[in-house]
Structures are given as structure tokens and as C-alpha cells.
Simulated assay, not measured.
Amino acid sequence: MGEAKAEEKQPVKRRRGAARGRILDAAARRFYADGVAATGIDTITAEAGVAKMSLYNNFDSKADLVRAYLEARHEEWLGLYRHRLAAVRGPADAVLAVFDAYADHADFAYEHGFRGCGLLNAAAELPNGHEGRAVVRRHKEEVESLLSAHLRELLPGQEERARVMAEHLAFLLEGAIVRAGLEGDDARMRSARDLAASLVGAL
């Protein structure tokens, strides 16, 4: 609903300009490094090198910018996953591609180091009902759905078993990324990937 309203206010052409990209890039850096609540509009526009009016010509509000940041981070992860998936040889490897994509995200050169899942970090700061929380929930549901799809291929005719295993692997993945964020490196992600490989290999 908020997105439809935004489209009425601003032509699609303007919303895809260079300024919008600079603003979104600056917001992504600051939101991840410093947090959503601690990052003000003035900080973002200064880093992006644009006037405050330019931000409001491209985003309805800070909440709209936060939502766009989270959607962009979701698409970024999907790109990593699809790249990993292109090299797999079967459904077992496809399950591990999900873990590898998260590890790849953790390996990015973040300004203040890896601080965990940017989506979950933002969601923890957002109030109930914020559009951004819905974006994060959809991302996590999609990740679990991808795991489930690969496991159904690995376990034909065993839908419930595949669903339960996907849920377990999703829990493993989330726990690992939280610990990785606390420890500032991808070691926990690698351990989780090895454990997932053992569990999938035993099916």
C-alpha cells in the first residue's frame, strides 16, 4: 500500500535515477554500520552528496528508505544464492548453496566488520507494524522455502520430512549467523555449513 502511494507521488523514471542509487548506497552503509535508529536523514544525505530535497524526491520518508534498503539487501542475497546455485550438481549441494550464500554475505568488506544479518539487525530496531519487518519476514520465509524445495527434491514423496528438515536447517542457519555477528567473522557460518552437509548426507 505504501509503495503504491509512493508510485503515485513520484514517477518511476525519477525513482531510478543516479541520486536514488547514491542515497540507497549511503543508507545501506550507515544502517548496517551504525544502526537504523542512530542514522539520521542528514547523515545519509551528507554521505550520498545530495540535498535533503533529493532524498524526499526519491523516498516518501525514512521508513520508505529503510524498506527499500531491506529489499535491496534481500535481492543482494538472492544474487549470491543464484550464483552459488549455478554451480551445484544436485539437491544436496543446492541446500548447501543457501549456507554458502550467507557466508558470502558475511565475507563482504563491511566498514566496521561483520555485524550479523543486516535484515535481522534492522528488524530488531523497528516497531511492530513497520513495513520493514514484513520485508525481513518474507526474506526469512523465502530462505526456508528454498531449503524445503531442495529437500523435497532430495526426498521425493516425503513432503513432511522435507518441511521439518528445512525448518531445522533454517534454525541452524539463523543461530550461526547471530553467533557470527557477535564474533565478527564467518567461522560459525562455516561450521554450520559443515553440520548441514552432515545432516543432509545422512538422509
Rank of each mutant, 00 (worst) to 15 (best):
V95S: 02
A101Y: 06
L80D: 13
H74D: 03
G90A: 06
E47R: 13
Y69G: 04
A94K: 00
Y32G: 01
A46S: 13
R84Y: 13
D34A: 04
V66E: 01
D100V: 04
R89F: 08
A46W: 09
A109R: 15
F59C: 00
V50E: 05
A38K: 03
H83S: 12
K62V: 08
R29Q: 12
F99L: 12
G113P: 05
Y56D: 01
A68V: 08
E111S: 14
L55N: 05
H74A: 02
H74G: 00
R30N: 02
T45E: 11
D107A: 15
K62H: 07
E71L: 15
Y32E: 03
R89V: 11
D104K: 00
L85E: 11
A106S: 13
A92G: 11
M53Q: 11
D42C: 06
A101I: 06
Y110N: 05
D107K: 15
A37L: 09
A92C: 07
V50I: 09
D93S: 07
E75Q: 15
E76N: 02
A48M: 00
Y81S: 03
L78T: 15
V98T: 12
H83D: 13
R89D: 14
E47Y: 10
V95I: 02
E47T: 12
G40H: 05
R30E: 07
R84N: 15
R73H: 14
V36P: 02
G79M: 13
M53D: 12
R89A: 14
R29D: 13
I44E: 02
R29L: 10
R89E: 14
E47F: 09
A101H: 05
M53H: 11
V66R: 02
D42R: 13
A48Y: 00
I41M: 12
R82C: 07
M53C: 06
D100P: 10
N58C: 14
F99H: 10
V66S: 03
